[in-house]
Amino acid sequence: MSPTVVIAGVGRFGMLHARVWREAGARVVGLADPDPERLAVAARTHEVARTDPDLAALLDRQSADIVVIASDEASHADLAVAALAAGSHVFVEKPLALSTVDAERIAATAAAHGRQVVAGQISRFAAPMARMRARIASGAIGTLCALRLRRDFSRAWYASFGDRVHPVWESCIHDIDLATSFTGRPVRRVMAMHAVAAGKARSSVVSALLEFDGGVIATIESAWLVPPGAPGTLDGGPLALDGAIVGEAEALGLDGVLRQRLVSDALVEWTGTGAQVPDMSLWPEEDGVIGGALRREIRYAIDVCAGHRPPDVMPLREACWGVAAAEAIVESLRTNSPVELPPA
């Protein structure tokens, strides 16, 4: 039976979710967004009859098996708790929450109501990252010693949405989560530095050193400084976002090393509008539908919420660990001091 889905937040990524969940076999039965014009456009586009600016009010009128939260980051925790209290499972886009207190509140509410919460950390579902995780777990590189992760974004995106919240929550959270998935452990100590390079009040360049329980060291770096002339990796497509994501992930063990480039140049397009190195892993269109990591992530969420598989790829406890680590990085940047995390 097709699961029923309500989507909270119908901005650019919420609209993409509406499409992919439908393509994955779900029935989108309701939409919530405080912007009435955006809500009306989304309802027409996806032929959804029931809408409301308030998610709780919508769920009073329309039950849903799963609520997908793709709203602004600051609203994630309250919307997740409201959806869980209404009896729905929850898929919440990254980050799960903006504080450890809120992450734990979500986890406690999910446990109290016997519902599942899947955090939308899409990088875990990219095929190369899934293989890296499996190879580390199998012992292919021996004892894991260190991780290096870097992710740089187009500078133009910073003015558009990069400083909506602290960039640690927007960009670094991806690699914090990957490091957490590779180690399977929480972070115990953080030291971070930053530069205000893009002309805004918040950090547009961040470098953090994380020590995980068990001793693995990870470096997390992010800079919103990729210039407009760089080859694009996103050319609009289903997300309608032009620009570039450039990065690498490296795992160093006693018996070997794994390295992966976030965007491969195996496919290069030279056209009259410039050079493109299109991403083929996150949400490529394949035979008229969205594929890649986003589709795998959503199929996983549907199966977990239906009880067809355990929450093994994205355990809620690891999403909570990631929130704690990101919060510690922000605090280290604020104080210019190391931050010790309490035992998880």
Rank of each mutant, 00 (worst) to 15 (best):
V5C: 05
A77H: 01
V168A: 05
A8N: 06
P53V: 14
V187W: 07
Q116Y: 07
E37P: 10
A119R: 04
R12C: 00
R135M: 05
C172N: 13
R185H: 08
G247A: 04
E269P: 11
H17I: 10
A275R: 13
S281D: 06
L254T: 15
A140N: 12
G307Y: 01
L16V: 14
S160C: 00
E170C: 06
I290H: 00
I220M: 05
E47H: 14
L58T: 11
E37L: 12
I245T: 15
A134K: 05
D279L: 09
R164W: 00
A275L: 12
L147S: 07
T335K: 13
W283C: 10
G253H: 05
A49S: 14
L267H: 15
A83Q: 00
A56L: 14
L39A: 15
R296G: 12
V313Q: 10
D60A: 14
L55D: 03
A198C: 04
H17C: 12
D65N: 12
R22D: 08
A223Y: 02
D287P: 12
A140D: 15
S281G: 05
I69Q: 14
S332T: 14
M280S: 13
A49Y: 10
R133H: 01
L209S: 11
S71V: 11
P343I: 06
S2F: 13
L55I: 12
A119C: 09
G253Y: 06
V257S: 08
F125P: 10
V165Q: 10
R259Y: 07
L55A: 06
F153K: 06
I173P: 00
W21A: 09
F212P: 02
I220T: 07
A103C: 02
W157G: 01
L225P: 03
D52Y: 15
I245H: 12
D65Y: 11
A218G: 08
I122W: 10
K200P: 02
A159V: 00
Q276K: 13
R309F: 01
L316Q: 09
N336I: 05
V226W: 08
A325Y: 03
L225F: 07
L39M: 10
A57T: 12
V101G: 03
I122M: 08
L39S: 12
G291A: 04
R115D: 02
H113R: 12
M129T: 01
F161A: 03
R317C: 02
C172E: 05
R105I: 03
E285F: 08
M191G: 01
A179W: 09
G199T: 04
A293C: 04
V117Q: 01
A74L: 15
E285Y: 01
G236V: 11
D255N: 10
V5M: 13
S99F: 00
V226N: 06
L31T: 13
A103Q: 02
A324K: 01
L147Y: 11
T143P: 07
A70R: 07
P128T: 02
G139R: 02
L31C: 11
F91L: 14
R148M: 00
A306L: 06
D287F: 02
V6T: 14
A119F: 08
S138P: 01
G11F: 01
P167K: 02
V268C: 13
S99I: 05
P53F: 15
P53N: 07
V10W: 05
V257G: 00
R61F: 07
A80S: 14
P284R: 02
V5G: 03
A230Y: 15
Q116A: 00
V90G: 06
A293N: 08
D72H: 13
A130N: 06
